[in-house]
C-alpha cells in the first residue's frame, strides 16, 4: 500500500536531511506505528506519503505508483492525513467541518449532498461524538477538535490513513477512543500508519513498530520484538524501563501486559 525506497527528505530552509535513506514497506491492512523522539522525522515521513513533501532522493510509492503520479483527487481518495495540530479560523459547525472530508469524492465546484451528510454523521457516531454535530469547531477543546478532525479523516474513506501524533492532545479516555478507532479501521481492511512518541500507544494499537531516530530507521518489526528496553533506550537516548521502572515517555508500565488492542501491549485504563 505504501512504500518508501531510500527516501531522503529535506526542508527548504534546512541544511541537512530530516530523513535519510529511509526504506519501508507497509502492506495493505496493517497498522504501523512510527515511534521516535521529537524531531526524528516521523511527521516528515507522513507528509512525504501524503505527497506534501517531495523526496530529495529516492521515491515514495502509494498503491504501487509514485505519490506525485496521482492526481490530487485520486491521491486524496487513496490517503487521508491527520496533522498534529490545525488552526481553524472560522466558526464552522462540526458537521460542516467533517463534511469537508468528502471533497475528494466530489468535482471541484460540486457541493456535498445528503448522502455525504449521512456519512459525516456516521463518522461522528463511530467516534462517539454524534452530539457534537451542531457545535462550533472553534468552541471545542483541543482534544475534542482532534476527534472531530479524525472523523473528517474517516469520512474521506481512503484505504490508507496517515495520522501524526493522533493522541498527543487527548486525555486517557479519548486517547483510548482513538486507539480503538485505529483498530477498527484495520478490521475494515484499511492500512494505518501513525506516528507517536508513546511506546504504550504503539504497543496497544499497532501490529508492527518502526523505530526512528534522527531521520533513520533503527529497527522495524512486530511490536513484541521491537519494544525492548534496549531498542527503546537507543531510540529515545534515555534509560527505558518496561515493567515497573518509571519512564518519562510511557504512561504506566504496561507495555508487555496482555491487552485488548491490536498489538501486544495494553493501554493503561
Amino acid at each position: 500500500m505504501l512504500e518508501y525506497r531510500q527516501v531522503c527528505l529535506r526542508y527548504p530552509e534546512g541544511d541537512r536531511d530530516a530523513v535519510a535513506g529511509f526504506s519501508l514497506s507497509v502492506p495493505e491492512g496493517s497498522v504501523r506505528a512510527l515511534l521516535g523522539p521529537n524531531g526524528s522525522g516521523k511527521s516528515t515521513l507522513l507528509l512525504a506519503a501524503l505527497g506534501w513533501m517531495r523526496p530529495r532522493a529516492g521515491e515514495v510509492l502509494l498503491a504501487g505508483r509514485p505519490v506525485s503520479a496521482w492526481s490530487p483527487g485520486e491521491r486524496a481518495r487513496k490517503a487521508a492525513h491527520l496533522s498534529q495540530i490545525e488552526r481553524v479560523s472560522f466558526t464552522y459547525e462540526v458537521l460542516e467541518f467533517v463534511l469537508m472530508g468528502r471533497a475528494p469524492h466530489l468535482a471541484p465546484l460540486a457541493e456535498p449532498d445528503e448522502g455525504d451528510e449521512e456519512r459525516a454523521r456516521a463518522a461522528l457516531d463511530a467516534l462517539g461524538i454524534g452530539d457534537f454535530a451542531r457545535r462550533h469547531v472553534t468552541a471545542l477543546s483541543g482534544g475534542e477538535l482532534q476527534l472531530v478532525r479524525l472523523a473528517r479523516c474517516l469520512v474521506q474513506e481512503a484505504p490508507l490513513v496517515l495520522l501524526d501524533e493522533p493522541t498527543a492532545a487527548l486525555d486517557p479516555a479519548n486517547a483510548l477512543r482513538v486507539a480503538d478507532a485505529l483498530a477498527s479501521l484495520a478490521r475494515e481492511g484499511r492500512t494505518v500508519v501513525f506516528s507517536t512518541h508513546d511506546a504504550a500507544l504503539a504497543a496497544y494499537a499497532s501490529d508492527s513498530v518502526v523505530l526512528i531516530r534522527e531521520g533513520r530507521l533503527l529497527a522495524s518489526g512486530p511490536s513484541a520484538e521491537i519494544l525492548t528496553p534496549e531498542l527503546l533506550s537507543r531510540t529515545f537516548a534515555v534509560p527505558f524501563g518496561v515493567s515497573g521502572a518509571p519512564s518519562p515517555f510511557v504512561t504506566g508500565s504496561s507495555i508487555r501486559a496482555a491487552g485488548g488492542g491490536r498489538g501486544s501491549g495494553s493501554w493503561p485504563r
Binding site: W52, A76, E86, R87, G101, A103, P108, L109
Partner: peptide, 26 residues
C-alpha cells in the same frame, strides 16, 4: 460557484492539500 470549495481552501495548506485541493493554484 466556489462557495463550498472556499471552505476547503480556508483550512491550513496541508489540510486542504490532503483533501485533494491544489491550494496555491486554486
Amino acid at each position: 460557484a466556489a462557495g463550498w470549495r472556499l471552505s476547503i481552501l480556508s483550512l491550513e495548506d496541508s489540510a486542504s492539500f490532503s483533501l485533494g485541493a491544489r491550494p496555491g493554484r486554486e
